[in-house]
C-alpha cells in the first residue's frame, strides 16, 4: 500500500514542471560551486604539494559542494512539501485516500518516502558530479559516503517537518511559508549557537550536518536526525487521525 502512495506522489510530482525545474536549478547551482572549487584546487595544488599530509581533492571540492547542497535542499523543501497534504485537503482529494482501505500511517509514510525518493535522485546527481573527479585523481569514498548519509538525514528532517506543517492547513502557500520560517529559524540557531557555544547548537540541523560534512558519522547527530524525523511523522499521523475523530 505504501508503494502505491509513493508511486502516486512521484507521479504527481513529475507531471508538474516544478520538479524538473528544481532538478535543473539545483544541478546548475551545485555544478557552478563544484567548478569554482575545482578551479581553486588547481590554483593551490602546487602549494599543497609542499605540505606534509595535504588535504585531498575530496576535502577541498566535495565537502563544500555538500555543504551548499544542504542549504539549497533545505530551501527547496517547502516548495515540494507544501502541496503534500494541504493541496489534497483544498481539492478535497484526501477523501479518496481516507475512504480507501489504507491506514493513516501508510498515507503519511507514502507521502514522506515519495518526497525522499525525489531527494535521493538529487543526491544521486550530486554524487555523480563528485565521482567525475575520479577521472583525474584519487577519491576519499568514506568522506563521500558520510556526506551522502548526512545530506539524506538532513532532508529527511526538513521533509518530515514540511509534511507536518502541510497537514495543519488547507493553503499550500501558508504551509510553504510556515516550513520556510521554521527551517530558517533552525538555521539561524546555528549562527547564534556558534557565537555563544551554548546548548542551543543541539537544535541546529546544519550543525549536526556539519559533523557528517567533515566525515564524522556521529551517533548523537544521527539520533537527533532520526528522532526529529520520527517525531514529525508521528505528529502528522496524529493530526490526520485527530481530524477524523474531532473533525
Amino acid at each position: 500500500m505504501i508503494a502505491t502512495i509513493i508511486r502516486k506522489e512521484l507521479h504527481m510530482l513529475f507531471i508538474s514542471p516544478l520538479a524538473w525545474l528544481l532538478l535543473a536549478l539545483v544541478q546548475l547551482v551545485l555544478a557552478w560551486v563544484f567548478l569554482v572549487r575545482l578551479d581553486a584546487f588547481l590554483e593551490i595544488q602546487p602549494q599543497l604539494m609542499q605540505i606534509a599530509n595535504p588535504p585531498g581533492v575530496t576535502e577541498i571540492i566535495v565537502t563544500p559542494v555538500f555543504a551548499v547542497a544542504a542549504i539549497v535542499l533545505l530551501m527547496i523543501t517547502p516548495l515540494l512539501s507544501m502541496r503534500l497534504i494541504a493541496e489534497e485537503r483544498r481539492n478535497r482529494t484526501l477523501t479518496l485516500l481516507i475512504s480507501a482501505p489504507v491506514s493513516m500511517t501508510d498515507i503519511v509514510l507514502g507521502k514522506f518516502f515519495g518526497l525522499m525518493v525525489f531527494f535521493s535522485a538529487i543526491t544521486g546527481l550530486i554524487i555523480a558530479l563528485c565521482v567525475s573527479l575520479r577521472t583525474g585523481g584519487v577519491m576519499d569514498f568514506g568522506l563521500l559516503l558520510s556526506n551522502t548519509i548526512g545530506l539524506l538525514l538532513t532532508v529527511a528532517c526538513s521533509s518530515a517537518l514540511g509534511l507536518y506543517i502541510s497537514s495543519l492547513t488547507a493553503q499550500p502557500a501558508i504551509a510553504a511559508a510556515g516550513t520556510l520560517g521554521v527551517l530558517l529559524g533552525l538555521w539561524l540557531v546555528d549562527l547564534a549557537a556558534s557565537a555563544t557555544q551554548s546548548w542551543l547548537h543541539y537544535f541546529s540541523l546544519l550543525k549536526h550536518f556539519g559533523h557528517f560534512n567533515q566525515g564524522l558519522i556521529d551517533t548523537l547527530s544521527t539520533a537527533y536526525f532520526i528522532l526529529f524525523t520520527v517525531t514529525f511523522l508521528v505528529l502528522t499521523i496524529r493530526r490526520l487521525d485527530g481530524e477524523r475523530l474531532h473533525g
Binding site: M1, T4, K8, H11, M12, I15, S16, N91, R92, T93, L94, T95, L96, L97, S99, A100, P101, V102
Partner: peptide, 29 residues
Amino acid sequence: KAHVGFLPEIPPLYFDMTVDEYLLLAARL
C-alpha cells in the same frame, strides 16, 4: 473499507491525471 465505494459531494479528482491513470490509482488503493 475494502467493501465500500464512496463518491463524496465534491468528487475527489486529481485534475492533473488522465482518466486511466486516476482509475488505476483508485483500483490499486
